[in-house]
Amino acid sequence: MKKVVIRIIVVILLLGGTYVTSPNQIGAFSSQQVARGAFGDDVIELQSRLQYIGYYKGTIDGKFGYGTYWALRTFQEKYGLPVDGIAGLKTRKKLVDVSKYDEKFVKDNLNKGNKFTHYGDKPLASQTKKGAGKKENIQLPAKYSEQDLKLIANAVYGESRGELYEGQVAVAAVILNRIEHADFPDTVGGVIFQPGAFTAVADGQIWLTPNAQAKEAVLDAINGWDPSENAIYYFNPITATSKWIWSRPQIKKIGLHVFCS
């Protein structure tokens, strides 16, 4: 009996210790501090709460950019907190104390792709209007848009689904290399829809819905990866009909594609 009691006490002490030493979770926020560059649920809550009390007037999109950063700094200044633009423990606690967050309302509208506000003291019904559909939950370098990512992902999926991941990143990189190259159009759409440039455009496969892997491949290419090593062409030696493509200097082969300059 004594042993059982001791065991129970030990378990309670262990659980208590874990609770005490675990990072503090404030409200619905996770335990982590949130800073510029972050994205996700914590940022959605941060933006919503800041908007609720009138500090943030930008889009609630879950992406911690400069708009959120300056709003947070202003909030910190106003409430006598250290002004660093980082949502640490103290800042999040204060924010939870002075604002409200209707998670269901916010997330429902985000999922519907609606445009909406989350200002306090207004009926929820008056805070929404129809938007252009659900946005991609992806952060990109400033020079690229979500539209670019979608279009390149369509091309990558249409051209190289079934290829190695590396091969898919390489196809995306070829599209981006063309945009920078003087011999090609200087927009994503211009490059992809240049007549005769991509088989997937000619046979309509570009309009298939790309999977997550194709999107991730494009994201890596947009962030600088280029497994093609600066190629501006690629072809499948088994199916290629153009004689001219064989005259291009070849760089490397990935899966079924030969990449050329």
Partner: peptide, 13 residues
Amino acid sequence: ETSKSGSPYPFYH
């Protein structure tokens, strides 16, 4: 593999 002869800089893949 080594890069193909047309590569502007030889590399190991």
